[in-house]
Amino acid sequence: MKYIKNIFIKIIAINMILLLTIYLFPFTAQARVLQNQPSIKSPSAILIDASSCKVLYEKNAHQRLEPASVAKIMTLLIAFEAIEKGKANFNDQVKVSERAWKTGGSQVFLGPGEVQTLETLLKCIVISSANDASVAVAEHIGGSVEGFVRMMNEKAKELGLKNTNFTNPHGLSDPNLYTTAYDIAIIAKELIKYPKFFEWSTKLVDYLEHTDKKREPTMLANTNKLLGKYEGLDGIKTGYHEKAGFCFVGSAKRGDLRLISVVMNAASSNDRFEDTKKLLDYGFGYFNSVTVAKKGATVKRIKVEKGLQKDIEIVYKEDKSVLVEKGKENEITTKIEIPDKIIAPVKKGEKVGVLKVYQENKEIGQVDLVAKQDVKKITYFDILKNLIRGLL
């Protein structure tokens, strides 16, 4: 009996040692990552990889909240898309309406009837969070504020955002205006595709020259207090009113890794920026990005049969990066699948092959490989012309 009792005690002791070992010394990198997640004060927050949209941290990320001026990132996205599609131009002359002039909250003091370029108004929104400029932009692109708000909500639906509803282009308080940290992160991911945005978001100070030259220029002061104080940080948007609390959408890039953080409803301005630093520190501390494809970069040249050209350049269709835990970069491998030759005609952008991406020998993604230029099919006349040229 004493022998059995001793064995039982040893078994209990061994199990306790194992449990303590697992608790005190997690044996996987994933466990270490989870154990070191930041402590965030703000009621709602999220951190994502901008390339893959993978969520690295979240806290009440799908809770509906008022976004205050953070709503303007959708206003900016709609404007940039309209310019990209040729429906608007940075040089468009925009006349400031009385409605825009009367808009309360943060302003750059545009006068009624004042004319500014669309580019200038967008700069005012990015740097100084100008509500009057937001209304002027909305009326110019949407035909009216109401028409522009419809565009904002249509875009939210297109992006698959189920917890977002806009009622104005500036974010002033409205019980029917709401979004979430997650939805804001997705909008921000779309906005930062436009390099022009960063020309303004990284400026600490600028000036607005008014149409009425008798007026002094309005100073545009950036409200992003992390600019120049956090490595790699280059945007995106602050927001505040009493109901929304202090909000901030951050973006920072180090190497090939770009992170987007969102903090909502913080109790103070200091809290939103401190929480942002904690989120970004966590992301850069435990994750890395491995670039496997660069849009437009040459993969190889392959032969073209029956074409006016003997060969053609094959390029990556898009950028592709893979997020991995630090120390696991070597787990990422790639394989190119492409024919030795193709037959003309070939159109620019036509898919010719594929790059397959693997992690620990498991396929995790693909990138299309496309023709860099057109190659016309050779005709009998082309053959005859080449023959004559050869004889001469």
Rank of each mutant, 00 (worst) to 15 (best):
L122D: 03
T103L: 09
E158N: 13
G171V: 07
G113D: 09
A88M: 05
G160C: 13
K87L: 13
V70D: 10
A136L: 08
S144C: 06
A79R: 08
F148I: 10
L161Y: 05
S144Q: 03
S129R: 00
K85E: 15
F166V: 02
L121M: 06
H62C: 02
V115D: 00
K155H: 10
H62V: 04
A71Y: 00
V135I: 15
L77N: 09
A136E: 02
K157C: 07
D132Q: 05
W101N: 13
D92W: 10
F109I: 01
L118A: 00
P169I: 12
V149E: 10
T167E: 15
N163S: 15
F80Q: 08
F80H: 12
R99D: 12
G113R: 07
L172Q: 08
Q107G: 07
A133W: 07
A100W: 09
L122Q: 00
G105H: 04
L65H: 03
H140D: 06
V96Y: 01
E139V: 00
K123T: 01
E98A: 13
E139I: 05
V149T: 09
N153I: 12
G171H: 10
F166Y: 15
A79Y: 08
H62F: 05
L159D: 11
A82D: 13
K95M: 11
S106L: 01
K157P: 02
S129T: 05
T103E: 14
S69H: 10
N163E: 15
T167W: 05
T164Y: 09
